[in-house]
């Protein structure tokens, strides 16, 4: 079929809300954008296991330990679905992982912040997972079929994680003075990085316009960020805590909360690799991969031996 005709079919599908599937024709740039976004998302799940994994052995009760272990394990599962979804676009998981380890592929910058206290497990659940969900709910309707379907499964688990996180903070906020202080401190440290999770402002966002046209994205970074602020301002009241931004104020004209300016210098520095834990996170992933090399080789060698035996028999 001529390229123009194929493109027309593709465009019609996008317009009529029909999903694009792996075997369908798609523009190279559409393939590339999806591959970049889905693999980044997969990497974020995997790197995201590290800051929370940091507290598994120190969780303050057996119940909390079980919940945290299960949560971090869910993230590994999300990574798996997403790598599989990305593989349908023609790149192997190994290639994607290599490009993460070589520093070429990005992952969500939020995971370059340290988890200093137990309260951070709550703040990550409430704020980080909360911010992620707004993005992910939108992605359940994204135009690429395998990505949309993976997101539907992931969203169910994520909203559970967010409730768990909020519940950790809720217990702290009803605890003793030290626990309350720990809770407020975690909110103070995670608030601004969570706002940064939505990416640069719309005027600075390079990939946004085309992604909206292709219905990969359906809401702009600033729209989602505003939605998040509006939601959190209400939820923080339940905790009896403060968001660390004096400029938060209801704007009757916009029917939204106004909020202060994000430190974009910090944002770009963390993106570029200068955040508090960029080096540690990547080093931990590389170490796991390198130390697992002999295991993967042995599994392949064993499988090959068994195949030879089967053929011989």
């Amino acid at each position: 079929m001529a390229a123009a005709a194929q493109e027309k079919i593709f465009t019609t599908k996008i317009e009529t809300e029909e999903k694009i599937e792996p075997k369908d024709w798609m523009p190279d740039a559409y393939r590339k954008t999806n591959l970049r976004q889905i693999s980044q998302h997969a990497h974020s799940e995997i790197v995201g296991m590290l800051p929370e994994g940091n507290w598994i052995t120190r969780a303050p009760s057996l119940k909390r330990k079980a919940i945290l272990l299960a949560k971090v394990q869910d993230e590994a599962g999300h990574g798996l679905y997403l790598y599989s979804a990305a593989e349908t676009l023609g790149m192997s998981r190994d290639e994607m992982i290599n490009s993460l380890h070589e520093g070429k592929a990005k992952y969500s910058s939020i995971f370059n912040y340290p988890t200093l206290t137990w309260a951070d497990m709550g703040a990550i659940g409430w704020l980080v997972d909360g911010a992620a969900i707004l993005n992910q709910v939108m992605l359940c309707r994204t135009s690429y079929g395998p990505y949309a379907r993976a997101m539907v499964r992931i969203c169910k688990e994520e909203s559970f994680h967010q409730r768990q996180g909020f519940e950790i903070l809720w217990v702290l906020s009803n605890g003793n003075a030290e626990q309350k202080a720990m809770c407020q401190d975690a909110i103070n440290r995670w608030w601004w990085p969570s706002l940064m999770m939505f990416g640069p402002t719309d005027s600075e966002s390079t990939n946004s316009d085309q992604s909206m046209k292709w219905k990969i994205k359906r809401k702009s970074n600033d729209e989602l960020r505003q939605q998040f602020v509006d939601m959190c301002v209400e939820q923080v009241k339940v905790l009896g805590m403060q968001l660390p931004d004096e400029k938060i104020k209801w704007n009757e004209k916009r029917k939204h909360y106004d909020f202060g300016e994000i430190d974009w210098n910090e944002f770009w520095n963390v993106v570029k690799g200068n955040g508090p834990c960029n080096k540690e996170r990547l080093a931990a992933r590389r170490k796991a991969h390198e130390e697992g090399q002999w295991v993967r080789e042995a599994a392949m060698a064993f499988a090959a031996k068994r195949n030879t035996k089967k053929t011989a028999a």
Binding site: M49, K65, L80, A284, K287, H289, G292, Q293, R296
Partner: peptide, 10 residues
């Protein structure tokens, strides 16, 4: 549980 996030393959 110390292996969680550090295993040889996902």
């Amino acid at each position: 549980s110390k292996w969680c996030g550090h295993g040889p393959v996902l």
